[in-house]
Structure formats: structure tokens, C-alpha cells
Design a protein around this nucleic acid. Structure first.
Length: 572
DNA sequence: CAATTCGGGGGG
DNA sequence: CCCACCCCCCGAATTG
């Protein structure tokens, strides 16, 4: 069985790149301290290739090292990303957002002035793939011995957390995520520019003068104007609101849900215009020119880019590809896309972390979770069950869902209590953590930490006070409560998803298959047609393994819906 | 004139 | 009827 992240018997080495592609390296003992003198080698890739016995490479920043290694054809098994770990440890210690560079960590260790982080690198459109490797970067490397000191201190800081084993798992899997991110960038998502252009032509028509406004948008704008009896620019909300007002219809916005049921001839072309305008501006011809090269779309993935641990991307809108545009994502000839989507990931994660017996039971089967909940508590009304579950996770405050939420609370008290407690912690200004220990930022304007950092792992029932828990909370603190309520679920789901990715990349290591896309609860693997069954099975195994490692023994199952397709749009 | 905010759409 | 959470990206409007 692959050891995904724990690394019981690991040969660890630390390294730091030097000028002209070389490296300094040093082996580390079980106490994280060097067991031999530092050696210097002229070729980083060769230095790594010649040490296959090393199972984990400790380095400052994956992004500064790993793309070079991949370009040289030297993938690594595991790493430990010191700056990623610093980020997680700082947040856990109540110092979310403090400078996280290795240089800053070293300064804190030595009691020296802490340098601010360099500004985040922005990827300009058109500034593609390998170009990023050769951008001048600020000189924030620290010496290898200093780096090892920071690493050893980080190991001690793990021990000081509420659940050191989980925190180690978190930093290990975040590091694995950094590897996956670089590998997915290098592989790229297969993208057929010709198909994309055909889709655009079909939806938007040709562009006037070759690069001007698409014909279809102009036609729809004319239809809107004709319906109002005067020229109206559909892309200017103020203009549209004024036009409706003149027609005797008062609007506070021109959002789709507010206009779609209005009986006026301008509405259908206006809605169609908004839909197409969005495609045109965000994923039209300009996007295609900027972001697709040689049949691949290579976004830069940022693991842990959001506070909850979900990933973001830097440019290209890779996590918001509209459904219609997915027709351009097509496997190479003879290859397939295995598109795998975790079924009801967040409710199942809530079952695993709350250990609610009844909720674990309905989550212990591969079948539709919402159907199981509705059979048990909602007389078979799946839609109501789904709304109630999502309402509990998001912190619904109004509407029909509320009485269903009460029903949910009766049937699954421990699960609802788990998120209720997270909400209360947020309202009271405390911090909350995911299952593995990723910690939410403090409330805006919260009294600066110190105070020994607000411990709250197993918060007492807070002297309850009975009665209305929310009665005296301000709107701000209620918003904070909804945030922390959702954070423990969304973030713990991100914990699990990261472990799935880490496990899956190891399952795929001896195949031609490549991970090419990851979006919260969905992965795409690009593989030769004949490997697709193995890949499908690998995803199942990665899911099971991730669940065991993340949550320990649990009856909760995490099924994926997988589709083997040539085109992304044909999945599900 | 550059930077920031707003409004509206896309994703999960 | 909308819900409630986490995001990105664009063009226009506004602000410094």
C-alpha cells in the first residue's frame, strides 16, 4: 500500500538551488538536523536523480525549484515545502497573514526584524507556461543551514499543535499539492483551439471587421433597443434599469433572477445577451489567444489559495470554465479523459468529522446521499433534503429551508451541532480549524492576538445562556458565524481532496496517465484509452485511502462519479 | 491618469 | 421569491 504522506521510514534531504542550476544539499536525521556536511553540486537535476533513496526533499518553495526539475525530466516522490508549512503554522498559531517567507521565519527564529513578503507575482495574460520560469524573482533564498534551522523549528511547532499528527499530515499534503500543481501546469489541459473557435462562431457569430463586436451580440442589443423603443446598451445596468423604469417596471438591479420572470419583450434578448457577453469577454477569442498554446491550457494553480484551503489559479479563470466552452477540452487521438466528480463531498465530510451516527449511516453508501437523507427524514422529498443539508452547511437564515433544517436537526443532531458550534465560535470571535488543522483567519478588527492565541480546540458549550443563541449577535458577527460554520466543512473537504490528489498522483506514477485538472471536488486524468479502466480504479482507491488517512476508520464512503470521454463536455 | 469599487456573470 | 458559503474575471464607473 502506498504511503501517501506520513513517510514512516523516510530518507530526508534538504536542498537549496544555487546559481546556474546547481544545488547545495544535506541529509537530515530523525531530529531534522543534518547528519553530514553540506555538499555542493553543479547540477540540481542530476543531484536529485542520483539519489533515488531520498523519499522526501525539503525545500523553501516548490514553485522556485520543481518546474526546473520537471523540465529536466526529474519528478520527485515527495517534498516538504517550508513556506507552505510556514503559512499553515502561522495561521494555526493565530498569526494568519504574517510574513511567511523562509527569510521571515528565520528572522522570527533569531529575533531579528521580520522582512515583509515580496508582492505576489501576477501572471499577465499571454505570459505563458515556461516564460514564468525565467522571470526575475526577488532574492529571498536563505542559506541551506538557516533553512534547516527553520525546518527543525517547524517540526517543533507541529508538536505544539492540538493534533500534531494531523498537522503533519496537513503540511505534507499541502506540499504534495504543490507538486501536483506544478505537474498539472507542465502537463496542461488538452485544448482544441479549432473547436473553441467553432463554438464561439456558433454562439456569437462572426466578428465585424475580424476583431470587432460579434454579430450575435449586436443583433441582441438591437432587439433589446427595439423592445424598449429607444437605444439601450444592455451591458450598462444603469441604462437598462432606466429603460425598465420608463416602461413602468421598477428594478433594483438587472440580475438574471430579478428580470427573468418579468413580462416584457426586452427580457429574453437581454438575458441571452448577458449570457453571450460573458462568454465573449471571459472565454472568447482574446482568452484563447492569451492562454492556449500548442494544444494545451496551462493555468498556474495555487494550492491553498483561499482561506478554506481550496485552490485558486493565477490568471486564465481555470476554475470557472463555462460548461459550453468545455467542448474545446478534447483528449489527444487515442487518448481519453477520465473525469471524476466526488458525489456530495461536503455532506459526507460533515458526517466524517461530526461522527453523527445516523448521518454516518446515510453517508456509508455509494448511493445518492440526499435521497438517503430524504428517505430517513423527509418522506422521500429529495429536493427538500438537499436544501436542508446545504442550509445547515451554509448557515441559511431564512426561507422554507428553515423548517426543514429543524427536521434535519432532530434526525441528525450531532452533525448539525457540529456546524452550530463552529458558527458560535465565529460569532464569539474565536478561531476554528478544519479536521487537519487549517485555521481560519481572525475576524476583521479582532483584538490583535497575543493573549496566548485563543485556544479553542474542544470548546466547552460556552456556558450556553440558553434561549436564543443568535438573538444578540450583530449582523457582522452573524456573518462571521456563517463563515466559520462553512469553513469547518468546506475546509475539511479541501483537506480530504488534497489527500485524494496526493494518493492519486502516486497511483498514476507508473502509468502514462497524467493529472491535468483539479477543481475542488473534481479531477481530470488524461490517459491512453487502454489505461482508462486502471485510472478509474485508481481514483476509487485514492478516495478510499484518502478517507482512511484523513479521518481514520470511518463508515463514511466517498464515491466518485467517473466518466471516460473524449470531450470534457460529454462528462455527466 | 492610475487605482479601486461596483455590477453581473461564470465555477464549486 | 430569494436563499446561506468559498472564489475569478471582465467592463464601466468612481475615486484619488
Amino acid at each position: 500500500m502506498p504511503d501517501v504522506t506520513l513517510g514512516t521510514v523516510t530518507e530526508r534531504w534538504a536542498l537549496t538551488p544555487t546559481e546556474h542550476g546547481g544545488a547545495q544539499l544535506v541529509p537530515l536525521g530523525p531530529d531534522a538536523l543534518p547528519t553530514a556536511p553540506v555538499t555542493t553540486e553543479p547540477d540540481l537535476a542530476k543531484a536529485i536523480r542520483s539519489r533515488p533513496e531520498v523519499t522526501r526533499w525539503v525545500w523553501r518553495d516548490t514553485h522556485a525549484v520543481y518546474p526546473h526539475l520537471l523540465a529536466a525530466g526529474v519528478p520527485v516522490d515527495r517534498c516538504y515545502d517550508i513556506e507552505a508549512a510556514e503559512n499553515l503554522l502561522l495561521a494555526h498559531e493565530g498569526h494568519h497573514g504574517d510574513p511567511r517567507s523562509a527569510a521571515a521565519a528565520l528572522a522570527r527564529l533569531k529575533g531579528a526584524p521580520v522582512p515583509p513578503d515580496p508582492p505576489p507575482r501576477i501572471v499577465a495574460p499571454g505570459h505563458l507556461s515556461m516564460d514564468a520560469l525565467f522571470e526575475p524573482r526577488p532574492p529571498v533564498e536563505v542559506t541551506l543551514t538557516d533553512l534547516v534551522d527553520v525546518y527543525a523549528e517547524q517540526q517543533r511547532r507541529h508538536d505544539a499543535t492540538a493534533h500534531p499528527g494531523r498537522m503533519r499530515l496537513l503540511t505534507a499534503s499541502e506540499s504534495a499539492g504543490m507538486l501536483v500543481a506544478a505537474e498539472m501546469h507542465a502537463a496542461g489541459l488538452p485544448w482544441r483551439a479549432d473547436v473553441h473557435r467553432a463554438v464561439l462562431a456558433e454562439l456569437l457569430g462572426e466578428r465585424y471587421g475580424g476583431g470587432g463586436e460579434p454579430r450575435r451580440l449586436a443583433e441582441l442589443a438591437d432587439e433589446v433597443s427595439a423592445a424598449f423603443g429607444r437605444p439601450v446598451r444592455p451591458d450598462l445596468p444603469a441604462d437598462v434599469i432606466k429603460a425598465f423604469a420608463q416602461a413602468g417596471i421598477k428594478l433594483t438591479s438587472t440580475r438574471r433572477w430579478e428580470i427573468e420572470n418579468i413580462d416584457h419583450p426586452a427580457v429574453p434578448p437581454l438575458i441571452e445577451y448577458k449570457k453571450l457577453y460573458r462568454i465573449y469577454t471571459a472565454h472568447g477569442w482574446t482568452w484563447l489567444n492569451d492562454w492556449v498554446r500548442d494544444g494545451r491550457f496551462r493555468p498556474e494553480y495555487l494550492p491553498g489559495g483561499t482561506v478554506s484551503g481550496r485552490w485558486t489559479t493565477n490568471g486564465g479563470g481555470a476554475l470557472q470554465i463555462p460548461k459550453v466552452i468545455r467542448r474545446a477540452v478534447v483528449a489527444d487521438p487515442g487518448w481519453r479523459l477520465v473525469v471524476a466528480d466526488a458525489d456530495q463531498m461536503e455532506p459526507r465530510v460533515l458526517a466524517a468529522i461530526s461522527r453523527d451516527p445516523a448521518f454516518m449511516e446515510v453517508s456509508g453508501q455509494a448511493a445518492d446521499l440526499y435521497q438517503a437523507v430524504s428517505d430517513r427524514a423527509f418522506a422521500g422529498d429529495r429536493g427538500q433534503a438537499k436544501l436542508a443539508v446545504l442550509g445547515a452547511i451554509y448557515g441559511q437564515t431564512s426561507g422554507d429551508g428553515l423548517k426543514n433544517l429543524a427536521l434535519l436537526r432532530r434526525r441528525f443532531p450531532q452533525a448539525v451541532a457540529y456546524v452550530d458550534e463552529a458558527a458560535r465560535a465565529g460569532e464569539e470571535g474565536r478561531l476554528v480549524r478544519t479536521w487537519l488543522g487549517r485555521t481560519c483567519p481572525p475576524a476583521a478588527g479582532a483584538a490583535e492576538p497575543e493573549e496566548a492565541g485563543i485556544p479553542q480546540d474542544e470548546p466547552e458549550q460556552a456556558a450556553d445562556a440558553g434561549g436564543s443563541t443568535y438573538g444578540y449577535a450583530s449582523s457582522n458577527s452573524r456573518a462571521r458565524g456563517r463563515f466559520t460554520r462553512n469553513f469547518v466543512v468546506q475546509g475539511s473537504a479541501a483537506d480530504w481532496a488534497l489527500l485524494v490528489l496526493a494518493a492519486l498522483r502516486r497511483e498514476l506514477a507508473d502509468m502514462a496517465a497524467e493529472l491535468v485538472f483539479f477543481q475542488h471536488d473534481e479531477v481530470i486524468v488524461h490517459c491512453p484509452e487502454e489505461e482508462a479502466p486502471r485510472v478509474t480504479e485508481a481514483i476509487r482507491e485514492a478516495s478510499d485511502l484518502a478517507a482512511r488517512i484523513t479521518f481514520g476508520e470511518t463508515p463514511v464512503r466517498f464515491p466518485f462519479t467517473t466518466a471516460v470521454v473524449e470531450c470534457y463536455a460529454d462528462a455527466k
